[in-house]
Design a protein around this nucleic acid. Structure first.
Lengths: 149, 149
DNA sequence: AATACAGCTGCAACTATTCGCACGAGGTCG
DNA sequence: CGACCTCGTGCGAATAGTTGCAGCTGTATT
């Protein structure tokens, strides 16, 4: 896979160590189109390599490491766990999460571009605006609320 | 305290039950200018009423309940715990959290108003935009990074 | 190919938060 | 003012994620 070697190269150039565990997590993320939880990643690993085992702490540490290197996003979608996904330029987006029905609407990344620009300009702050979640009430639930009142 | 009775009235009107525990949490939040963690609230309660005791699960449930009723904000500032504060119109703001030095910069709530408007218009989504945290790198850390490279 | 060492890994304990359940107490109605 | 019903509370166990530590392994160097 090109993407894979590409990421590996990127990390190696930064002087980062590439252990089998890290490659594994990277491989799983790369083969998934969706956001994955740490547990889902663990399950995917044993599914693909039933004789391997990798500690959950290592998975969490690897995800945090990938996040620090801006290779994966770490997002809350309102559940009690975080979800992770590779930061490929193509699939970036943000999330609108309905507090009531938990529906997730994906919105285009451009939404927050002006915000990023403003923060950069006014505070010199370089925001990491990828896969942000915003919580609130979706149109359907709002209508229903009004009906009930 | 006016604010207090005001909030209590607001909740009562919505048909919510006001237990001593809930009043207690509300009172603590109301007397603090800062964001408080669940644990800090628990400590504040025993400090003020040493003979009372209130279960931590209850504190969490109360905070969630207040959040659902849009009376408090629940925010992550990058640590491993959430912080809570009363949603009074005056003190609202958002947070820029530096991933490296963990400095928190407060920014005016107006920053996200256009975003809220866009979401409302395009998706009918009513976002809860109070005390949002955005993560990234602050000016100081970015300069330092460049120096090192 | 052997060395050295910083930086990983596994393990088990720990923190923050949530959940299930049985009991208790707010608020409403008569 | 007393009963009733619903909802909240305390308790203890469960879950997601983190941390300390001792041993192991990538990787640069030779």
């Amino acid at each position: 896979m090109e993407v894979f070697t590409d990421l590996v190269e990127q990390l190696r150039r930064r002087g980062e160590r590439l252990t089998p565990q890290r490659r594994l997590v990277l491989e799983i993320l790369q083969n998934s189109e969706q956001h994955l939880s740490a547990e889902a990643i663990a399950r995917a690993i044993v599914l693909r390599y039933p004789n391997l085992q990798i500690d959950q702490a290592t998975i969490y540490r690897t995800l945090k490491w990938l996040h620090q290197h801006d290779l994966v996003s770490e997002t809350s979608l309102g559940g009690n766990h975080m979800v992770y996904s590779l930061l490929s330029a193509h699939h970036n987006h943000h999330h609108l999460v309905c507090d009531q029905c938990h529906t997730v609407i994906e919105v285009e990344p451009e939404l927050l571009v002006p915000v990023a620009a403003a923060l950069q300009e006014r505070y010199g702050f370089q925001a990491r605006l990828a896969h942000i979640s915003l919580f609130g009430t979706c149109a359907a639930c709002r209508l229903q609320d009004e009906g009930e009142v």
